[in-house]
């Protein structure tokens, strides 16, 4: 089952990268995807069940515009701070806790935090993330978690857990 998932992903990536629908290229891609999937399927994919759950894909589609909007806001924020003559920053590293369980979810959360306004993941240990803020607003564990993590956590729990 896990091998089938990897075969599908590899084949879709092949089709996107070549973008030619002749019989030759599709056959070559199919054979290569089959070999890769059979060899590495058990290492790359942890669980095959969630991949075929359509509700998770729906929430992933909801997640993309939210993420893009936050990312655009982040860029205008950084642009403002860079262009301001006095550099209005008070940086610091705060610790936050997430409720996510799966590794994939935590990786996506860390990447999302890095690309959104004023925050940047330095390290993670288990469920605790260390986040460098360009403008520290609250230093307590609970308030910082609420402020930084909550925006994405609600959606990511529905996608990955």
């Amino acid at each position: 089952m896990r091998k089938i998932v990897l075969i599908l992903f590899a084949f879709i990536l092949w089709v996107l990268l070549t973008w030619s629908f002749t019989l030759q290229s599709l056959t070559a891609g199919g054979v290569v995807a089959l070999i890769i999937g059979l060899l590495f399927g058990n290492f790359v994919i942890e669980k095959a069940g969630p991949v075929f759950d359509l509700r998770r894909w729906f929430w992933a589609l909801v997640y993309i515009p939210v993420f893009l909007w936050e990312m655009t806001k982040a860029n205008f924020d950084v642009a403002y701070r860079v262009l301001h003559p006095k550099l209005p920053i008070d940086p610091g590293i705060v610790k936050v806790k997430t409720k996510l369980q799966s590794e994939m979810g935590i990786v996506f959360l860390a990447n999302s935090i890095t690309l959104t306004p004023g925050t940047f993941t330095v390290d993670l240990k288990g469920q605790y993330l260390y986040i460098h803020c360009i403008k520290v607003r609250s230093t307590g564990l609970a308030e910082a978690s609420h402020e930084i993590v909550d925006r994405f956590e609600k959606l990511l729990i529905k996608i990955f857990d």
Binding site: D90, P91, G92, I93, V94, K95, V122, D123, Y130, T139
Partner: peptide
């Protein structure tokens, strides 16, 4: 970290 730093939980 720079002198303006407020807090550093990581260290």
């Amino acid at each position: 970290l720079t002198d303006k730093t407020v807090v550093d939980h990581y260290a």
